[in-house]
Design a protein around this nucleic acid. Structure first.
Lengths: 160, 160
DNA sequence: TATCAATACTTGTCATGTCAAGTATTTTTC
DNA sequence: GAAAAATACTTGACATGACAAGTATTGATA
């Protein structure tokens, strides 16, 4: 079976341009990969977003304000409030009002969450290996370079 | 300003592996790009999913069963039902029961939708140029190749 | 120092995705 | 030819994103 995107999505005509083909390949690859991770996280009662929040909190090693979490995810602030709500209900994080600035809410990861993350670490690493293990080091390096280059104008230009 | 992902998301430590770095770059690039398209489509009263459905219907040139549309999108069937509901409410598509097999519902694009798509065609092309215009032809070719290669095991192995 | 702007969230509404169940309509099978 | 299985959706419950608007608190300014 061919893995060409044109066949994959039953596109009748060839792509209008290389740019369209690249964008659709990016979209499709991301979706397929994300689905794999979503299934993995689900086994542990987590969604991808929840996993990301917990990873950020664990990586930081100390409680973080909601805004800080929102900054590091792609997401808008309101989405974070809901995410934290559900994580708190599941006892994966706790909220704590900051005393110096009472507008700020600190989010703290619980030991329970740390323990779940620890269980997930190996499977995540294995999944990454499964998804990208067949690319050589230099191919990975080139892929990273091209993706970074692709983002450059978006990051440089605040207009965007 | 550096466009390195590590700085972008304020990651304290370097990546565990090249594979992780590649996956996060894929995720981030896709999100940034998708956001651009979402904003564009919104100007015309469409979401990205709705735009995709309409593109599929226009590309096909004739009505398609819901299942067929679901197949070509990544999505599960229930999501399509809701999508079609809203597109129908917005008068962008019509539903028609198949006479031979009354379980099947054909979805047909309206002239109104065709006209909106026509308006969007040029801005979409311009956005693609804006996002990827700074990559050379050979860089685009290489990016496409690497993304296709990345997906290969997922497509070949039904286990996945 | 009184007010106005900025900051950090929270809430509400809507679109989309997921899964589990349910309905209607063939198709298969015994 | 009737019951069972398959097919094509639809519906309902819930998580997640997006945007707009609201609240509480703090900072800046006149």
């Amino acid at each position: 079976m061919s893995h060409k995107l044109q066949h994959e999505i039953k596109k009748k005509r060839p792509f209008d341009s290389q740019q369209e083909e690249a964008l659709l390949n990016l979209l499709r690859t991301n979706e397929l990969f994300q689905n794999q991770f979503i299934r993995l996280f689900r086994k542990y009662g987590l969604t991808a977003s929840q996993y990301n929040v917990l990873r950020i909190l664990r990586g930081e090693g100390k409680p973080l304000p909601s805004l800080e979490i929102a900054d590091r995810m792609i997401h808008v602030v309101p989405a974070i409030t809901g995410l934290i709500d559900r994580l708190e209900k599941a006892r994966f994080v706790k909220r704590r009002r900051c005393e110096e600035d009472r507008r700020v809410v600190y989010v703290e990861i619980t030991d329970e969450a740390i323990s779940v993350l620890k269980q997930i670490d190996r499977p995540v690493k294995q999944l990454r290996e499964k998804l990208l293990g067949h690319l050589t080091r230099s191919e990975l390096r080139e892929l990273i370079r091209l993706l970074e280059k692709a983002r450059t104008p978006l990051l440089a230009d605040p207009e965007f």
